[in-house]
Amino acid sequence: MTDESTPRKKRPLPPVKEAAVAYLSRRDHAEKELRQKLKRRGYSHGDIEQAIDFCQDYKWLDDVRYAGTTIRNGIAKGWGELRIRQEMELKGVNSQVIEQVMAVHEIDWFEHARAVAQRKYGETPMETQKEKAKRFRFMQSRGFDFEQIAYAFDQDEEY
């Protein structure tokens, strides 16, 4: 039984390389994201740099691979290009890497939008303006632009 007034002992931090590898063993991370996590745990800048270099040397940390994984996972979740780009930017992926990876993954975003709309709504017609607005908002929240949404719902007229 401990007295509430006595401070608890802090557990010592594991070596920074071990912590970095532990994060990467759970899932892929962007370099900036891993750097932030290690910093929050209290590691020094120099130690973090060594761990990052170590992980990159062994190809355990690779922003290009991370971006490719993010695109594939985003598509599987029914996200559009805008949402996938936003996700990568939030995780700290360099904009040049994003552009490079997006160019390699040739995705027809219009057909993807149509598939997402079909999966969500099936053949149910949009009978009211309110229903149309609701569906358009849903697709926008998934990261599709107006043209892709209009294509998905076969809408030629102005919104």
Rank of each mutant, 00 (worst) to 15 (best):
T70Q: 14
T70C: 13
I71S: 04
G74A: 07
A76H: 10
W79D: 10
W79C: 07
G80C: 08
G80E: 07
G80A: 06
L82D: 10
L82C: 01
L82M: 13
R83D: 10
R83G: 14
R83M: 10
I84S: 06
R85W: 02
R85S: 08
R85D: 06
R85Q: 12
Q86C: 01
M88T: 07
L90V: 01
L90N: 15
V93R: 02
V93T: 05
N94Q: 08
N94L: 01
N94Y: 05
S95A: 10
Q96D: 15
V97N: 07
V97H: 06
V97D: 07
V97K: 07
I98F: 04
I98E: 05
E99F: 02
E99P: 00
Q100A: 10
Q100E: 14
Q100Y: 10
V101W: 01
M102V: 03
V104G: 01
V104F: 02
E106V: 09
I107M: 05
I107S: 05
I107L: 07
D108F: 05
W109A: 12
W109D: 11
E111C: 04
E111W: 01
H112T: 06
R114E: 12
A115Q: 15
A115H: 09
A117R: 09
Q118M: 12
Q118Y: 06
R119I: 00
R119H: 12
R119G: 04
K120E: 14
K120R: 15
K120W: 05
Y121C: 00
Y121S: 06
G122P: 08
E123A: 13
T124W: 02
T124I: 15
P125N: 06
P125A: 09
M126D: 12
E127S: 07
E127R: 15
Q129M: 07
Q129A: 06
Q129G: 01
K132E: 14
K132M: 15
K132D: 04
K132F: 14
